[in-house]
Simulated scan of single mutants.
Amino acid sequence: MFRTLKELFDSFAAPAADPAATEHQLQLATAVLLVEVMRADPEIGDAERAAAMQALRDKFALAGDEVERLIELATTTAAEAYDYQRFTGQLNRAFDADRKLRVIELMWQVAYADGHLHAHEAHVMKKVAELLYIPHADYIHAKLAARDAVGAR
C-alpha cells in the first residue's frame, strides 16, 4: 500500500510523459475534488457517493470497476492531502475554462445529492472555484442549476 501511495505522490511531483498517465492524473485530481466535497459533509450518504461515481463515469467514460477503484484511491489521497492546490493546478494546466467549469458543476451535483448543502461543502466549493479561476457568475449559475435539479433547499 505504501508503495502505491508513493508512486501516486511521485506522479504528482514529476510531469507525466505518457498521455495515459496524464489522463489518469486528471481523473484522480477530479475524483479527489469530488471526494473532498463528500468529506465536507459530516454525514456522507449513499446519494453523494452515487453522484460522485456517476460524475466520474460521465466525465471520463469509465467502467463501474474503474470508477470504484478511482473513488477508493481518491478517498485515500484526499485523506492524506494537505491542500487542493496540486489537484487544481493539474486541472488548470490541462483543462480549458469550459472543462474546469464542468468539474465545478459535477462538484455541485455531489454537494446537493443529499438534498441540502452543508456549510463545509459550500466552503470547499468556494475554495476550489477560486483555485480553478471560475468566474463568480459561472460559479453561482452552476450552484443554482445543481440545486434546482434536485429540488434542494
Rank of each mutant, 00 (worst) to 15 (best):
E48I: 09
T30E: 00
A52T: 02
M125K: 02
E80N: 11
A97K: 13
P15D: 10
V110Y: 07
F12C: 02
M125C: 03
L5D: 05
A61D: 04
Y82M: 14
L131D: 07
Y82A: 15
A17R: 07
A40E: 04
A79F: 10
M1S: 13
L5F: 13
A94M: 09
E23F: 08
A29R: 00
A111N: 03
M107V: 05
L132R: 04
A79K: 13
L62H: 00
H141A: 15
I44Q: 15
E121K: 06
F9Y: 09
I71G: 00
L26R: 00
A47Y: 11
E72C: 06
E66F: 01
A17P: 04
A20Q: 11
V128W: 02
L101M: 07
T76P: 04
S11V: 02
F2V: 11
L70H: 00
Y84K: 06
T76H: 10
H116N: 09
H116Y: 10
F60L: 02
V35F: 09
A122R: 10
L33W: 04
I44F: 12
A14W: 08
A137K: 13
Y84T: 03
D98F: 12
R39K: 15
H123C: 09
E66Q: 01
L101P: 06
H120A: 14
M125L: 14
R93S: 14
K143D: 05
M107Q: 02
F95G: 04
A14R: 14
F2M: 14
A145T: 11
H141K: 15
Y112H: 03
A61M: 09
L106G: 03
R49T: 08
T76L: 14
A142W: 03
G64A: 10
A152Y: 02
V67A: 01
I140A: 11
L101N: 06
G45Y: 15
F9D: 00
D41A: 15
L56F: 05
E36R: 13
A119D: 08
L8M: 11
D65R: 07
I134W: 05
L33T: 01
A17C: 08
D138Q: 15
E66Y: 01
Q90F: 13
R102D: 10
L34V: 07
A52D: 00
L106C: 03
F60H: 01
M38N: 07
R39W: 12
